[in-house]
């Protein structure tokens, strides 16, 4: 059962990602990327990483992609006005990424020797366990992440101001 769910979600992710790259209209790209993110959230559920699945949907589909959609509509880019790169450039990009794929697959295939522990803990991705780890071992990085958010917020407001008097 699990492998069918995995294959379905993987196919859905790859197809929507390809549609995202190839669709001419940027708004369609955003919508396909949201579908991709939902399929990836399904993969997290399959891995029993429920905290990550929920956070992924809230952060990506709820915040980041809505921000992207707002900017697209604010700039009025929702018609097919995007100039295309030349076909020679596209062929070059295809060859480059294909070579990267072949290299990565060739390097990684068969080289993974993972010792899966016999008594694996299935509740490792639940909120209780992750919260304990996050607020004991990783409490300093967590606070630094808060400062990073503050800096990003101030930076975004400063960059977006129309006439900045320094």
């Amino acid at each position: 059962m699990a492998q069918y769910i995995f294959l379905t979600l993987a196919l859905l992710t790859v197809i929507t990602a390809l549609l995202m790259v190839f669709s001419k209209n940027p708004v369609h790209s955003v919508l396909y990327l949201i579908l991709t993110f939902f399929a990836i959230a399904g993969q997290y559920v399959l891995l029993n990483a429920q905290f990550l699945a929920v956070v992924h949907i809230i952060v990506y589909a709820g915040a980041i992609m809505v921000l992207f959609l707002f900017v697209l509509m604010l700039l009025n880019l929702n018609e097919d006005s995007e100039p295309q790169k030349s076909s020679r450039w596209k062929i070059g990009a295809g060859i480059t990424s294909g070579l990267l794929l072949v290299t990565l697959v060739g390097a990684l295939k068969g080289s993974i020797q993972l010792q899966v522990p016999e008594s694996s803990n299935p509740s490792v991705g639940l909120v209780e366990n992750l919260g304990k780890v996050l607020f004991t071992d990783f409490v300093v990085p967590f606070e630094i992440a808060g400062i990073l958010f503050l800096a990003a917020m101030v930076g975004a407001v400063m960059v977006g101001k129309r006439d900045l008097k320094v």
Binding site: A49, L52, L130, A145
Partner: peptide
């Protein structure tokens, strides 16, 4: 990998990558 090794640190790392991605999207769109 975090689930296969039943080690929570990988998922904490994913959480921090999401934090950085959100900050990057906000500043980049600005």
């Amino acid at each position: 990998f975090s689930t296969y090794l039943s080690d929570a640190q990988g998922q904490i790392m994913v959480f921090f990558i999401m934090v950085v991605a959100a900050a990057e999207a906000a500043v980049g769109l600005g």
